[in-house]
Simulated scan of single mutants.
Amino acid sequence: MRKYLMILMAITAISFPSWSRDEKLNVKVLYTGTISPPEAETIKGGSWFKKFSMVHPAFFIQHPKGTFLFDTGLGHSIKTQVKDMVWWARSATKFIQKESAADQLKALGLKADRIILSHAHFDHSSGLIDFPSVPVEVLQEELDFLKTKNASPAIFPSLFNEQIVWQTYTLENKSYEGYAKSRDIFGDGSLILVGMPGHSPGSVGLFINLASGKRAFLVGDTVWNSDGITKGLPKFWISSKFADNKPDEVMTRILELQALQKKYPDLLIVPSHDAKAVGAFEEMMNRN
């Protein structure tokens, strides 16, 4: 009997992971800057008299199999980098810079094994040069885009240097929550990347699935304002002209998010710059 019990225990140990996602999967929000433009700049039909609170976060993700940054936010050299921005956009980009993600991680004694970009715009990639030896993962479409001259007013040469270690990856032809292609980062269903082209050719979103049943979806800059999902509205037309590579595709992504939210009312959809949504995500992870 004892022999069979020992065999059963061995099989159990092999069959099930020895860690709990709720205990081991952790996400820390690193705020690298803030900005408070009129709401009208963030969504079609918004108020010019109401301020909208925006943030520039990096997300530090800890998993039993590794750590990574999802975006870097604003880096050490952001004030120099934005000098490459077209004047009309620079005049409207009066953000308040905070500590860089690199400095915050150093102070916490934490280290990222790699960086995965939601997309390559300056407010998501400015800090790359602060991590010269850390591999940076992007889709090939995004790498081609950022290397194209005048690809976007939000991408400029000073963001990148020869020390950045680029690594491309591909999304598998496995549908996930309505998205045709996906990538299970650690193979356990906790962190799933999906393709969200439109804002840029290689934009991706990140599903975060906790064992507790709580779920979040980091959607980059498909919208800046969560009301864009609720109301099915794009950015203000000038903002879209500056930021969105293909506005029609962005609108398709917004309608997909609307349908997803209707299907899963408890799913927390997090636009990267919506301070309220990012704060709700931070609170969710802190409770977890």
Score class of each variant (00 low, 15 high):
L171D: 12
F60S: 00
R90A: 10
L5N: 05
F207M: 04
K94A: 06
N173R: 13
F281Q: 07
T42D: 07
E137M: 13
W237V: 13
S47L: 09
N150S: 12
S212I: 08
S239Y: 14
I7L: 07
K149C: 03
L105T: 01
V138H: 02
G279W: 02
D123K: 10
G198M: 01
M6K: 12
K51R: 14
H199D: 01
D123M: 05
V219I: 13
K263P: 00
T34C: 00
S158N: 07
A216L: 07
I185K: 00
A216F: 08
Q104V: 10
A58D: 00
M9T: 14
G213T: 08
T148S: 12
K231Y: 09
L30C: 06
F59H: 15
N225G: 07
F59A: 10
I43M: 11
A277W: 03
I208C: 04
D244E: 14
P135H: 08
D188I: 11
F242H: 13
G232Y: 10
V194E: 01
E249T: 13
R21E: 04
N26E: 12
G195P: 03
I164K: 02
R114Q: 10
I164L: 01
K147C: 07
E137A: 11
H199A: 02
I78C: 02
I7D: 05
L218Y: 08
G189H: 06
A92H: 13
F156A: 00
M196I: 03
Q81H: 02
K149F: 03
L171Q: 14
G33S: 01
E141L: 09
R2T: 12
R287M: 07
E283S: 15
T252W: 11
G228P: 01
P132I: 12
W19Q: 13
R2L: 12
R2C: 11
Y4D: 09
N209E: 00
R215S: 07
L233C: 11
A180M: 09
I155F: 04
K262L: 04
S77A: 13
F160T: 03
N245W: 14
I229M: 02
P64Y: 05
K28Y: 13
N286Y: 10
R90C: 06
A40R: 12
M284N: 02
S53D: 14
R253L: 14
S53Y: 12
W88S: 08
T80W: 13
S158A: 05
L159N: 02
H76T: 15
K147L: 09
K106F: 00
F70E: 01
S36R: 15
M9G: 13
N161W: 02
A151R: 03
N150M: 07
G232M: 10
A211G: 11
E142M: 06
P265E: 03
T34K: 12
D266E: 08
L110K: 14
I61F: 06
G109N: 01
G73I: 11
Q167H: 14
D144M: 10
K98R: 11
D144Y: 05
K106G: 00
N286I: 14
H199V: 03
F59K: 07
Q163I: 00
G45V: 11
